[in-house]
Design a protein around this nucleic acid. Structure first.
Lengths: 337, 337
DNA sequence: ATGAAAGCGCTAACAT
DNA sequence: ATGTTAGCGCTTTCAT
């Protein structure tokens, strides 16, 4: 980079004022004589002057940049959160640096680069409990967790109300008359998975249905794991009339397995997921699901983070967002036999 | 942010050396006495000192940050490019700031914020020809275009070899005996769309088949537009035996429309797309497609950009990446009547 | 091999 | 209302 950008002093010289006056015009704080302002603005325009963000950061001690660390950038759920966060950040005059970190090692490297070297003012961590990465977040620095709420109330977080979402999904199946309702979960070590299991359990219990542990199959959020899940159930000869998959991808895998085993969806098997992925409605059959407002979650998280960064009080907030039932054609009333 | 981080001078004081010596140790450039180095390193460890990236940027005149502007962050294709770019950037000691810009206005705002205010050293623009945003990129600044190659050879770019990819997709259909091959395109004003049309045309021509303009329907990359596309063809009673959709989403829309109209895929209609989206193989039927290495494209673009940023020569490069045919079950030999 | 001085481009504090 | 001085935390000369 050639470095012949005009500086604030170049502007000052051309306008015949001190560089400080230029700074005042730029930040239009403190009164400045209208005539002087005009001269300065003319000089700015003539030189095409733009203040250096770096120098500003240097003087102010803030970078006006936030970071978001996500397990990856391509998962639609994560990408939607990031997109919402990025929009909100920019609306508030911040930039968002998003990085993916597959494992705890690169995560702690990132923390060092971003926070240790003071490259950003605040941090959003998506899916903090997928591994033990939450242990690596510094606690004297503004951080918001997204995707699972923290049991530790000293940490800000925004998450889906996982228990409630699962409850509603299962409730939907129950209302259709289903009594054998299986579930494909996410990885059992994730809080999100556990909360959805709670919602499932609560829904069954409040309908007076028994919980059959063999109807609960662990998956890993991937379509393949959903496919394997149904296969496992079938091999064990435990065929439910409905399946609650803890996300849409696994629901799609379940549907594929059902096709392979000549089980008709929804006639033989109702399937419901969580997320409302973009192509859910193009699936065969179009997938019933619990829609979540991921960009909204990203925006909320950013809002809270900026509050923490700018206000000295560091207001800790924990937000839970609700989902919304979307009934398509993958769920139907149980067939009376 | 409380600002009581130790500085290079704190370290110097504790180690009993000048702050300059500390700087030397940090950048281990120039010889420094092993004993002194040890003292300094001890002081660094004791204070938990980490150099400020901002101050470093200030002194060096470079931010070690790149930006990537994309129409959105959630589209799998874009997200994959960004993820590849982010990884490559970090491998090379850079950070990547990714922003979405739906329209040319926010695009030029972004350019001003990022480049005008010198927040980044280089820029990647995804899908520069979707609207006229490429007009807003400064030409005295390192930029790489991704997603469509520039006709202007003074601009670096990395893109899919769109013509070749389309050629191969259509060639696959032809090799299955199809002669009525329709196409659902992207927006006609995008170069990428035009190049794929060229590939389609060339494939048909080299097989001695006629081009029927009414078999070419404009879409907008969305699944819905694919669905509408087939519907239009059917309403006009121009039913092809195969369809080349210029991306997977539209191919999925086509498949849905086919279902609605009781056309069996692939028995009545073969469908092929481009991209190989994650769920393509879970679709019913699993979708044949042209797989593209999007993260690879992102990495290449970043590599070229970093070369431009660091080397003074600004080596302009234009790269075209090939796709790979993935045959699943949505394409089959034409039914002899 | 190490130190001292100057400067990167801004803002804040204190003059006037 | 405007100018002067100092300083943010580094690196790059230039001395020693």
């Amino acid at each position: 980079m050639t470095n012949n950008h005009p500086t604030i002093r170049d502007v000052a010289r051309l306008a015949g004022v001190s560089h400080q006056t230029v700074s005042r015009v730029l930040n239009d704080v403190e009164k400045v004589n209208p005539e002087t302002r005009e001269k300065v603005e003319a000089a700015i325009a003539e030189l095409g002057y733009r203040p250096s963000a770096i120098a500003r950061s240097m003087a102010l001690g803030e970078t006006r940049t936030l970071a978001c660390i996500s397990p990856n950038l391509t998962d639609f759920t994560f990408a939607s959160i990031i997109e919402g966060a990025e929009q909100e950040a920019r609306n508030q005059g911040y930039f968002l640096l998003s990085s993916s970190s597959g494992d705890p090692d690169t995560f702690s490297d990132l923390i060092d680069e971003l926070i240790g070297h003071r490259r950003v003012d605040g941090l959003i961590v998506i899916n903090p409990y997928a591994d033990n990465r939450y242990e690596f977040t510094p606690n004297d620095f503004p951080v918001v967790f997204v995707g699972a709420y923290s049991r530790d109330t000293s940490i800000s977080s925004v998450s889906l109300d996982d228990e409630h979402v699962a409850y509603e999904a299962v409730q939907h199946l129950i209302s259709l008359g289903h009594q054998q309702i299986a579930m494909i979960t996410g990885p059992l070590e994730e809080d999100c998975t556990q909360d959805r299991i709670k919602g499932y359990t609560r829904a069954l219990e409040s309908a007076g249905l028994e919980i059959d542990p063999s109807m609960i199959i662990e998956g890993d959020w991937s379509a393949t794991s959903g496919q394997n899940g149904l296969q496992t159930l079938i091999e064990q000869n435990r065929i439910p009339t409905a399946i609650f998959a803890q996300n849409d991808r696994m629901a799609m895998g379940v549907t594929k397995a059902a096709r392979d085993f000549k089980l008709a969806v929804p006639e033989d098997l109702s399937v419901i997921g969580v997320d409302d992925m973009p192509l859910s409605s193009y699936f065969d059959p179009p997938l019933s699901t619990m829609k979540q407002d991921m960009p909204g979650i990203g925006r909320e998280a950013t809002q809270i983070l900026i509050d923490m960064v700018s206000k000295t009080g560091r207001p800790i907030r924990q937000l839970k967002i609700s989902g919304e039932l979307v009934v398509r054609q993958s769920t139907a009333a149980v067939r009376k036999e």
